[in-house]
Nucleic acid binder design. Structure first.
Lengths: 160, 160
DNA sequence: CAATCAAATGCAAGATTCTTGCATCGAGAC
DNA sequence: GTCTCGATGCAAGAATCTTGCATTTGATTG
């Protein structure tokens, strides 16, 4: 196991800024923009991936193009906030493929979900399963997205 | 300009399923899993990108690792829903780098935002600018994420 | 301030991956 | 049946990525 530089320098930050916009840019192009050689870029990227700074490399797919055009934001309030039951519902949400994002939050409700479905029928079925049948949901509020203003933006990285 | 197969067949679906998990998998590996040759995979990927089915290819970065650990979900209600002012505020949100996701929604509020900030001070400043100074915001409600259960999951693609 | 050591760098060669030309295949039109 | 057009696989060529090695850089120590 190799030992790592623990802090990210300005080269790393610039690199992250570039790859979170497009991770298929050739290394020699990144190299030129960052101001290092291509092998240096390769080694830094490898470390950033090993360290988990880069968590994954994914293609972003147009949900409508694959027949799943509906995005729905849901606020969920649970009935029982005991650790065991909270862990249970977190695990349930984690496993549910239709939930694309899920946060456990403060502020009058317990969870916020971003859900992707084919149509309202699938959403109805989703709520039935996740909120009624599987239990521990006191109430939920549904917000249907009429328009996606933006999605999957990268973290803003000011070159510190 | 080339003419395209307009529908996605099961090869495309399988391919999308794979690249939305990891878009750096070598084409010969994808080829084997999908059941086509490597050049066929390459040509399909190119078309999917040109068609916009694959919208972008990005590295997902650990927000905490780059010093921006706070995720905040905000519900925004506007004062004036006239087209012009609505377009204005959409454009404002689109341009704001701290807003990672933004949906215009039905259901008792107008927008849902997912915001990334370094700390509460930055969030306070964000609300001041976006919600008070720039106008047309009647009210907003803040939900601070205590725990990210999941994020940036791919669209569920059942091989139809 | 020089000496030392570990980590990072650039270069160049080698390995892998991607792209392209071409002949062939297959489904639909006529 | 035959024609046409798009898609395919193979193989060669092009581009990209990785690795070994000598050198440089930077922090630490004496």
């Amino acid at each position: 196991m190799q030992k790592y530089r623990s802090t990210l320098d300005r080269f790393d930050m610039k690199l992250l800024q570039l790859v979170q916009v497009s991770n298929r840019t050739p290394q020699h192009v990144l190299a030129e923009e960052v101001g290092l050689s291509a092998p240096a870029i390769a080694r830094r990227l490898q470390k950033l991936r090993e360290q988990g700074v880069i968590q994954k490399d994914m293609a972003i797919i147009d949900a409508a193009a694959v027949g799943r055009p509906l995005t729905i934001i849901v606020q969920v309030t649970v009935e029982d906030e005991s650790f065991a039951l909270l862990d249970e519902i977190k695990e349930r949400f984690r496993r549910c493929e239709q939930i694309l994002h899920c946060h456990y939050v403060t502020g009058g409700t317990d969870f916020v979900l971003i859900v992707n479905v084919r149509d309202m029928e699938e959403y109805t079925q989703f709520t039935r399963t996740q909120f009624f049948e599987l239990g521990n949901v006191k109430s939920f509020q549904t917000y249907v997205s009429m328009e996606c203003i933006k999605a999957n933006e990268g973290i803003p990285l000011d070159l510190e």
